[in-house]
């Protein structure tokens, strides 16, 4: 495993853990889109179906379990925890995320590395991950609430995307037969959408700057 991949995994892991820890500590999820978090939970659940069928390394297995556990915990907090769910911007978080799922599923049925259940689910998870940030983007534009979407979360997600792209470039040039078009293209789309998210974040941050008091 190269350094880019490892750093990509770590920043991805920290982005999820920082969010979970924040929700757990301040008992608030204001500014966080439940729709996006639910999509991420579906992404992990469908991608890691191979947990029980293919063993790659202890590292991979542990990471998969941690990603699954932490993203499901975030969803649980936002839906079930009596204090946290009160802070949820339900009326603003109106993106109809179910409409993202069906097109991704159809695309996965049409474009996959092999037409098997596991491979279709894997492709589905990649397509869904690419667009999962959309509800969060819409919520951010609506509420301009950047209190909880701290610089850390934005920075970590951005670092994760960048490191993974560097990892793909590195592997392409150092390994024989390392070609994953589906992963690359959906990863690129995801990074572009993330760039949008990044842009709005800083835009909101700049505009709210004067109103914010030191914490």
């Amino acid at each position: 495993m190269n350094m880019f991949r490892f750093l990509g995994d770590m920043t991805h892991l920290f982005s999820v853990l920082v969010l979970l820890l924040k929700i757990h500590t301040i008992k608030s999820c204001a500014g966080i889109s439940l729709k996006t978090q639910e999509l991420y939970a579906i992404v992990f659940a469908t991608r890691y179906l191979d947990l029980f069928t293919d063993y790659i390394s202890l590292y991979n297995t542990v990471m998969k379990l941690v990603y699954l556990g932490s993203s499901l915990s975030i969803v649980w907090y936002m839906r079930r925890h009596k204090l946290v769910r009160r802070s949820y911007d339900k009326d603003q978080d109106t993106f109809r995320h179910h409409f993202l799922i069906l097109p991704c599923l159809i695309l996965a049925l049409l474009i996959n590395e092999k037409f098997t259940f596991m491979e279709v689910m894997w492709a589905f998870s990649l397509y869904l991950e690419a667009v999962a940030i959309l509800p969060q983007l819409v919520l951010l534009q609506r509420t301009r609430n950047i209190d909880n979407l701290t610089g850390q979360y934005v920075f970590l997600l951005g670092a994760y995307r960048s490191f993974y792209i560097l990892n793909w470039i590195y592997r392409y040039f150092t390994e024989v037969h390392y070609v994953h078009w589906i992963t690359w293209i959906s990863g690129l789309v995801q990074t572009l959408l993330y760039g949008d998210f990044f842009y709005y974040y800083f835009h909101s941050w700049k505009n709210n700057e004067k109103l914010q008091l030191p914490a």
């Binding site: 995994d9 790659i56 991979n60 994953h180």
Partner: peptide, 10 residues
């Protein structure tokens, strides 16, 4: 190999 390669990334 080729089709249905083992996915070793997360």
């Amino acid at each position: 190999q080729g089709q249905g390669k083992l996915h070793d990334e997360l």
